[in-house]
C-alpha cells in the first residue's frame, strides 16, 4: 500500500472533524459553517491528489454556493437560533443506520473492485483542464447537454414557483 503523506493525513483529519462537528453541534448555523469546512477539506483533498479543476470547482460550488444557500435557508426559516433541539434525536435512528451502512458497503465494494487499486504502476498524470474539456465536449456531450437542460428546467421551475406566490398575495 502506498504511503500516506502528511498533507493527506492532516486534511483527512480536519475534514473528518468538521464533518462530525456538522452532525453534532447544537447551533444550526454552526453546523452549516462546519459543513462548509468539510466541503473545503474535500476540495483540498482533490487538489492534493492533483485534480485541480475538480478541487477548485468543489470549492467554488460547494463552499461558495451551497454553503451560502444552506445558511440563507436557515436564516430565512428559523432565525438560526433553535438551540433547543436535542443532541441525539429520540427514537431509534434505524433508517439512518440502514442507509449509512448500505452506502458504506456499496462504496467499499466499488473501491475494492475498481481497477485502480490493483494497478501497481505509477499514478497517471493528472488531467489538465483542456483534456477534461475535450472529453466533456466530445465523448460525453449528450449527458452534459441533458444535465444543462435539467438545470435550466429547475431554474425556470424556481422562477415559476416564486412568481405564483407573488400573484396570490396581490
Amino acid at each position: 500500500m502506498r504511503q500516506m503523506s502528511a498533507a493527506f493525513l492532516i486534511l483527512a483529519i480536519v475534514t473528518m472533524i468538521a464533518a462530525c462537528a456538522a452532525m453534532t453541534l447544537r447551533g444550526l448555523v454552526h453546523c452549516a459553517l462546519a459543513l462548509a469546512v468539510a466541503f473545503a477539506g474535500i476540495g483540498t483533498l482533490y487538489l492534493s491528489l492533483g485534480a485541480q479543476f475538480l478541487g477548485l470547482a468543489q470549492l467554488l460550488v460547494y463552499v461558495g454556493a451551497i454553503a451560502v444557500l444552506i445558511v440563507f435557508v436557515i436564516l430565512l426559516t428559523r432565525g438560526g437560533e433553535s438551540d433547543a433541539r436535542p443532541l441525539i434525536p429520540t427514537g431509534l435512528p434505524i433508517t439512518g443506520i440502514v442507509v449509512a451502512t448500505t452506502i458504506l458497503a456499496l462504496l467499499a465494494w466499488a473501491v475494492f473492485h475498481s481497477f485502480a487499486i490493483h494497478s501497481l504502476g505509477p499514478p497517471a498524470s493528472p488531467a489538465t483542464v483542456r483534456e477534461l474539456g475535450t472529453v466533456l465536449m466530445a465523448d460525453y456531450v449528450l449527458p452534459l447537454e441533458v444535465m444543462g437542460l435539467m438545470l435550466t428546467a429547475a431554474l425556470i421551475g424556481a422562477v415559476v414557483v416564486a412568481m405564483k406566490e407573488k400573484q396570490d398575495t396581490q
Binding site: 477548485l56 470549492l59 467554488l60 463552499v63 445558511v71 483542464v129
Partner: peptide, 19 residues
Amino acid sequence: DAGVLFFFAIGAISELSVF
C-alpha cells in the same frame, strides 16, 4: 493550470466570512 478558477474559488470563501 487553472489559475483563474483558483481566483474565483477563493473569492467564494470570502462571502462566507462576511456572513
